[in-house]
Design a binder for these strands. Structure first.
Length: 336
DNA sequence: CGACATGATTCTAA
DNA sequence: TTAGAATCATGTCG
């Protein structure tokens, strides 16, 4: 077992090593042909079979299936939720309070989406391509050494794991980008701008002339939104805030109520309105109002049982407490 | 700068 | 889903 046999075996091994080193390179059919016809091929094959058996490399197959990486799932869910992955939905954020920067946000999100999808596709392509190469490589090698189907699959599995690792990185950094964008947008959204004086005026007028039932219908909200040049949700927010704060601070609100009632009365001529409200313009209503627990409003008749705006929370002590606390309250009134 | 006003958000309960 | 309540965060005024 010396001499030419040895040299030809060396030749063969050299060829095999060349293949291993070439990984992604295509192998000439010529070379393949040469290898498979090589006189020493069957012998080498058998030796490798033996080695394989001894080292029992083949036992380990398909034991460790990917257990649905929770981290990857989390990332995926988040990306879908943020509108980066999945269908291109509209702006996924709750509320429509801010107007102008919506488009900005959308545009930036879209950009992230594009980059993300591009990269993802790149990785997928590369992965598929690489997998294909390895497959054919292993298949080619299988004529020289024992490789069964399962082992090829296992190798493919390993490759895909590696690539999915890269994908996780991509997804992670995309998530990060979205979070940064989102938080910035959220901050911007939270950046409150006070409504214009007129808008507040309109809203207050509505509120105090529907005091017994300050729940504008959807249509009313739309109308108010239009008048105030704000969104419907802003109107809803405003009324939500107004109701709760009104109840919390009856005394103060009462002055305000009187103010708006008076304004309205003035606008319609002093005659009927002011009289029917039981108040007088310019007067300190808290004092003049003969019904301390009662509030001025257009629909006083509803204030009993049928009023949805239950003022049972009213507390006379609170009133006293707030009366001196907010004395400068209604000094923002008439500025003719 | 501190206190209060105010629009927006979040959480809970019905 | 919605109202209410609590809370957040900024705007505003002295």
């Amino acid at each position: 077992m010396v001499g030419t046999n040895l040299t030809s075996l060396n030749d063969l091994l050299a060829e095999v090593m060349k293949i291993n080193g070439q990984t992604l390179e295509d192998i000439d059919n010529q070379k393949k042909q040469a290898l498979s016809c090589h006189p020493m091929r069957p012998a080498l094959f058998n030796v490798l079979c033996e080695v394989k058996e001894k080292t029992s490399l083949s036992i380990r197959t398909g034991v460790d299936e990917t257990p649905e990486d929770p981290q990857l799932m989390r990332l995926d869910n988040m990306l879908v939720a943020e509108g980066v992955a999945g269908p291109d939905k509209g702006v996924p954020l709750a509320g429509d309070a801010s107007g102008g920067d919506q488009a900005d946000y959308r545009q930036k999100l879209l950009h992230i989406r594009q980059v993300y999808n591009e990269e993802l596709r790149k990785y997928e392509d590369a992965c598929a391509e690489f997998t294909q190469h390895v497959r054919s490589l292993l298949k080619d090698q299988s004529i020289l050494r024992p490789i069964n189907h399962k082992e090829i699959e296992r190798m493919v599995c390993i490759i895909q794991k590696k690539f999915s690792g890269i994908q996780v990185q991509l997804k992670q950094s995309t998530c990060e980008a979205v979070m940064i964008l989102r938080s910035r947008f959220l901050d911007a959204r939270r950046k409150r701008r006070n409504f214009s004086k007129q808008a507040t005026e309109v809203l207050n007028e509505y509120f105090y002339s529907h005091l017994s039932n300050p729940y504008p219908s959807e249509e009313a909200k739309e109308e108010l939104a239009r008048q105030c040049n704000i969104t419907v949700s802003q109107v809803s927010n405003w009324f939500g805030n107004k109701r709760i704060r009104y109840k919390k601070n009856i005394a103060k609100a009462q002055e305000e109520a009187n103010m708006y009632a008076a304004k309205k009365a003035a606008a319609h001529g002093l005659g009927g309105m002011a009289a029917s409200y039981g108040i007088l313009p310019g007067a300190s209503a808290g004092i003049l109002n003969p019904y301390p627990g009662m509030l001025p409003g257009q629909d006083l008749s509803h204030m009993g049982m049928s009023s949805a705006f239950d003022l049972s929370a009213y507390n006379p002590q609170l009133m006293a407490q707030y009366q001196h606390q907010h004395q400068q309250q209604s000094n923002l009134e008439e500025k003719p």
